[in-house]
């Protein structure tokens, strides 16, 4: 395994570490994005560990800092976060194409990183796969039943719940003071119709999709078939793999949870691109 730091993009403002197996291969390159504001190593060094394990399987991985995060400088002249992300990813793919002849990419991230990976896939046909950890999900009848059903079966709990919702409605909300950090951290899910259209596009392009959800995402996702129920008109076939780790927290803090996460990602990479 070889590891080396690179500055790339316009003016060398973007920064990342490329982890490569000893022998080059024709497999797609993996690009791992920032989780929130955490620099490229990822929460608890998860991106470093994953990149090195992927190298053992023959995959090269770039863990990069998006502009303005980690050790990458802000991208001047582009105030729109979404366009910045797409431009950063395009620069990363161009760099790997020029330096290593890479033609296909798997892009992955946690939370905001997952949404950013999705954006990159929409914008660039070189993306062949997506790894989305705690990305978007939308409520379904079964989701609501699982979420609220136990409360409805218990009248006292139901009353407490309704009371809490009412008090939330009337309680004064703190004044918003949005910053660039807030913008990165609190990205809303895109409208479901738009995502459905983009997922159809992914299916037409034959993208491999790995959606992984932790227990900490229970406000949005709570059963494995939820994504297929969200988008019944998208003919995913076997292009979509969904994993659910209800016992895990959002950033896989516990070592045993992280091992399960790695096994899921590595197994999927081997199956789809090995």
């Amino acid at each position: 395994m070889k590891e080396r730091a690179y500055a790339f993009g316009e003016g060398g403002g973007l920064f990342g570490i490329l982890t490569e197996p000893e022998e080059a291969s024709q497999r797609p390159f993996v690009i791992l994005l920032n989780a929130g504001l955490v620099h490229r190593v990822g929460p608890f060094r998860v991106s470093v560990d994953l990149a090195r394990r992927l190298a053992a399987l023959g995959f090269s991985t770039l863990r990069m800092d998006l502009s303005g995060l980690g050790d990458s400088t802000p991208r001047p002249g582009e105030p729109d976060l979404h366009r910045r992300v797409v431009a950063d990813l395009r620069d990363a793919m161009d760099f790997l194409a020029q330096r290593r002849g890479a033609r296909r990419f798997v892009v992955g991230g946690i939370c905001a990183g997952a949404i950013n990976a999705h954006r990159a896939a929409v914008a660039d046909p070189r993306v062949a796969g997506l790894i989305m950890l705690d990305g978007y999900a939308y409520p379904t009848p079964q989701f609501l039943l699982r979420r609220y059903g136990p409360r409805l079966a218990n009248p006292a709990a139901a009353l407490r719940f309704v009371g809490r919702q009412l008090s939330n409605l009337v309680a004064p909300q703190p004044a918003a003071t949005p910053s660039e950090d807030d913008e990165i951290l609190s990205q809303d899910f895109p409208p479901k119709d738009r995502i459905a259209a983009e997922l159809r596009q992914f299916v037409e392009r034959n993208l491999a999709l790995l959606f992984i959800y932790s227990g900490n995402w229970y406000l949005y996702f709570n059963y494995r078939e939820q994504i297929r129920d969200n988008f019944p008109d998208v003919p995913f076939g076997d292009r979509l793999t969904v994993e659910h780790f209800p016992e895990a927290d959002h950033t896989y803090t516990l070592l045993e949870d992280r091992e399960r996460l790695f096994a899921a990602v590595l197994g999927w990479m081997r199956e789809k691109f090995g």
Partner: peptide, 19 residues
Amino acid sequence: RSFQHPRQERPGPGLLGFP
């Protein structure tokens, strides 16, 4: 806020995400 249900962790070296 971290875990949906309290966790019983297997004995191991982990502390706040690191071994």
